[in-house]
Every structure is written in C-alpha cells, then in structure tokens.
C-alpha cells in the first residue's frame, strides 16, 4: 500500500507490503542501511531511529503505520562534511568498536537528550517531581535499550557527557 513519509528531510513515497517493517523499508527499499538489524525483535536497539523526534525501534514498527511521519536516521544527522555533535563525540571518545550498534546508539542519544531536556524522568530519578539532572547514572539507565556487545559503554558515556550540552 502507498505510504508517504519524510525521511531525513526528503519526501519519500513507497508502495509497501504491509508486513514490511520500518527497518526493512529503510534498509531494503530506500538504501538507508545505516540503521542496523541486530535482533529484529526490539531486544538490542541497533535499529533505533527518530520518528517525529522520538526514538523508537524501527524493527518493531510496520512501515505502513508511518504515513505522514518525519523520520530521521543516522544518515540524516551530519550536515555535509560536518558531523552532528553526537557523532563527533562518539568518534573523539572511541565510543564504538565494531560499529554495528553505533547508529542506534547515536540516534538513541539524540532522542534521549531531548527526553531529558523535556523533563522526563527515568528509573534512576530519585525525586520524580524534581527537575531532570542528567547524571552519569541517569545516562546509563536511559541508554540501556542500546546493547553494545563490544562493550564500549564507558566510552559511550564519555561521549554523551561531552555532547550533552551541544546536542
């Protein structure tokens, strides 16, 4: 079925099998292979993309449900040669090894920073009614939906800390 969305600022229109997930539509139909398939069941976070500014697992979302949505993938973050501040921070802090979870980690970071800026709480928040302060513990809890088997977690934390003021 015909579905229209905006991907990385560009209008896109696809005739979709209703079974096609957003992740497979990106990877197999739109040549946007930066979003990764690690588990295909919402258990790793490698497919994280931003839909209308919110981070989601693209593997568990049927593409036809995204009519009219604004989707941002890892390919849509850099401005030409200039990396997005979160991408630059990941590079600087060596916040990845094999790189397979990395696009998901970066998209998740951007979504997470917005959630924190909007005052959302997390399980690490002691006082649920206080303003959000993005401590290390908060960052770790909020990023726990993105597994990294190479285990670059200390480096990812450092990258997010350094990018947090910029993103």
């Amino acid at each position: 079925m015909k579905t229209h969305f905006t991907i990385n600022g560009q209008a896109a229109s696809l005739d979709l099998d209703p079974r096609t997930t957003l992740l497979d539509a990106l990877r197999e139909r739109l040549d946007l292979k930066g979003s990764k398939k690690g588990c295909d069941h919402g258990q790793c976070g490698a497919c994280t993309v931003l839909v209308n500014g919110q981070r989601i697992n693209a593997c568990l979302s049927l593409a036809v449900t995204h009519e009219g949505d604004e989707i941002t993938t890892i390919e849509g973050l850099a401005q030409g040669e200039a990396l997005h501040p979160v991408q630059a921070a990941f590079l600087e802090h060596d916040a990845f090894q094999c790189g397979y979870c990395t696009p998901g980690q970066i998209c998740s970071t951007i979504g997470m920073l917005k959630e924190a800026a909007d005052g959302w709480a997390s399980l690490a928040t002691d006082d649920l009614t206080a303003d959000t302060v993005l401590t290390d513990e908060e960052i770790r809890e909020r990023m726990s939906g993105n597994l990294c088997r190479c285990s670059a977690y200390p480096q990812i934390l450092a990258a997010i800390r350094s990018a947090g003021g910029l993103a």
């Binding site: 919402g42 568990l60 979302s61 959630e115 709480a121 399980l123 009614t129």
Partner: peptide, 29 residues
C-alpha cells in the same frame, strides 16, 4: 504516562513501574 507530572506526583509507583519496563525506545511506542 511516566513523564506526566500528575502521574509522577500522585502515582509514583505507576511511574516507577513503567520506567522499570523495557527501554526508552520501546516505551515511546
């Protein structure tokens, strides 16, 4: 629901329970 200030102030057990589950990405959907 977990971000809602009314929920957080009046039903903290519910906010904690929701925030205990899944991941940020999954809770957004």
């Amino acid at each position: 629901v977990a971000a809602d200030m009314k929920v957080r102030a009046r039903y903290p057990a519910l906010a904690q329970a929701i925030l205990s589950g899944a991941s940020g990405q999954l809770r957004n959907k």
